[in-house]
C-alpha cells in the first residue's frame, strides 16, 4: 500500500467527490428557484412561496402540454415494449450475422445525431400529415426507446436456461404456455426496466419534439423550450422540478428492476 499514501488518497477522494457534487447539485438549483415569490428568479429566493405551482396548474397551456407528454410517452412505451420484446426474443433465434445486422439497425437511431433524424422526420412527416400529431411524435420517440427495451430484455434473456424451455415443451406445453409460464416471468424485470426507461426517454425528448410538435402536440419539454427562449420565469423551474420528481420515481423503479434482472441472471448455472 506504500504506493498509495494517505495524502494521495485524500486528494483523489476530495477531487472525485467534488466532481460528483458538481454533477448533482447544479440540477437541484431549479427546486429553490421554483419557490420564488417574484416574477424574476433569484437564488436563493428573496421571498419563498408556492404561488408559481398554482400558476402552473391553473395555466391551460402548461397543463395541456403535460397531458400531451403523458399521451405521447404512453403510446411510445407500449409500442416500444411490444415491438422491442418481440425483437429481443427473435434475435436469439437467428444466426450470428443476421443478429449483428439487425442489432445495428435497432441501435442506429442512437448513433445518427438526433438533429439529423429530426430533420429527416420533419421533412417526410409533413407530406405524410404526421406533424403536430401525438401519433407522429410517439413514433419518433419509439426510435429512441426501442433500443433500450431490446438491450434490457436481451440482458434478462441471458438468465433464461434453454433447458427450461425444452423441459416445458417435452412435458407437452404449447408455445403460448411456454412463453407465459417460463419466458415471460424470466424477462419481466428487463421488460419492466425497458418500459420505465422508455417512458422517461419519451418524456425528456426535446430535439425531435421541437420539430414535430407543431401547434397541436406540444409536449412539456417543447413548451419549456419555447418559454425559456423568451424569458426566465419561475414557472419554468416549477415544470423542471415536477419533471425531476417524476425522474426520481422512474430512476428508483428502474434500479429495482435492474437489481431483479441481475439476481435473475446470477441464478443461472
Amino acid at each position: 500500500m506504500r504506493w498509495r499514501p494517505l495524502l494521495f488518497r485524500l486528494a483523489v477522494h476530495g477531487f472525485g467527490s467534488a466532481v460528483l457534487a458538481a454533477l448533482l447539485l447544479p440540477i437541484l438549483a431549479v427546486v429553490p428557484a421554483s419557490l420564488n415569490y417574484g416574477s424574476f428568479i433569484s437564488l436563493p429566493p428573496e421571498t419563498w412561496s408556492t404561488r408559481w405551482y398554482g400558476r402552473f396548474f391553473a395555466d391551460r397551456e402548461w397543463l395541456t402540454s403535460l397531458v400531451t407528454s403523458f399521451q405521447v410517452a404512453a403510446i411510445a412505451t407500449v409500442v416500444s415494449v411490444v415491438f422491442g420484446t418481440a425483437a429481443a426474443l427473435g434475435l436469439i433465434r437467428v444466426g450470428r450475422r443476421l443478429r449483428a445486422a439487425l442489432t445495428g439497425l435497432i441501435l442506429a437511431p442512437l448513433i445518427v445525431p438526433v438533429i439529423v433524424t429530426a430533420v429527416a422526420l420533419y421533412y417526410t412527416s409533413r407530406s405524410w400529415g404526421l406533424t403536430g400529431t401525438v401519433t407522429g411524435l410517439a413514433m419518433a420517440h419509439v426510435l429512441m426507446c426501442l433500443p433500450f427495451v431490446v438491450l434490457n430484455v436481451g440482458v434478462s434473456l441471458g438468465g433464461l436456461d434453454p433447458n427450461w424451455i425444452r423441459a416445458a415443451e417435452g412435458l407437452g406445453a404449447s408455445p403460448a404456455r411456454v412463453f407465459m409460464t417460463v419466458t415471460l416471468p424470466t424477462i419481466l424485470p428487463g421488460l419492466f426496466g425497458g418500459a420505465v426507461f422508455s417512458l422517461m426517454t419519451s418524456f425528456d425528448e426535446v430535439v425531435m419534439s421541437i420539430f414535430l410538435a407543431g401547434i397541436q402536440a406540444k409536449t412539456l419539454p417543447v413548451k419549456m423550450w419555447e418559454v425559456v427562449r423568451l424569458e426566465f420565469t419561475p414557472i419554468l423551474s416549477v415544470a423542471s422540478t415536477l419533471l425531476i420528481g417524476l425522474t426520481v420515481v422512474m430512476f428508483v423503479l428502474f434500479r429495482l428492476a435492474a437489481a431483479r434482472t441481475a439476481a435473475g441472471t446470477e441464478t443461472r448455472p
Binding site: L20, L23, L24, I27, A29, V30, A33, P221, F232
Partner: peptide, 22 residues
C-alpha cells in the same frame, strides 16, 4: 455510481436551464 447515472436521466433541457440560473 448512482450519482454518475442519475444525471443521465434528467432532461438535457433541465440541466441546461439549471446552468442558466446558476
Amino acid at each position: 455510481v448512482y450519482g454518475v447515472l442519475f444525471p443521465l436521466w434528467i432532461s438535457v433541457l433541465i440541466r441546461t436551464f439549471a446552468w442558466i440560473l446558476l
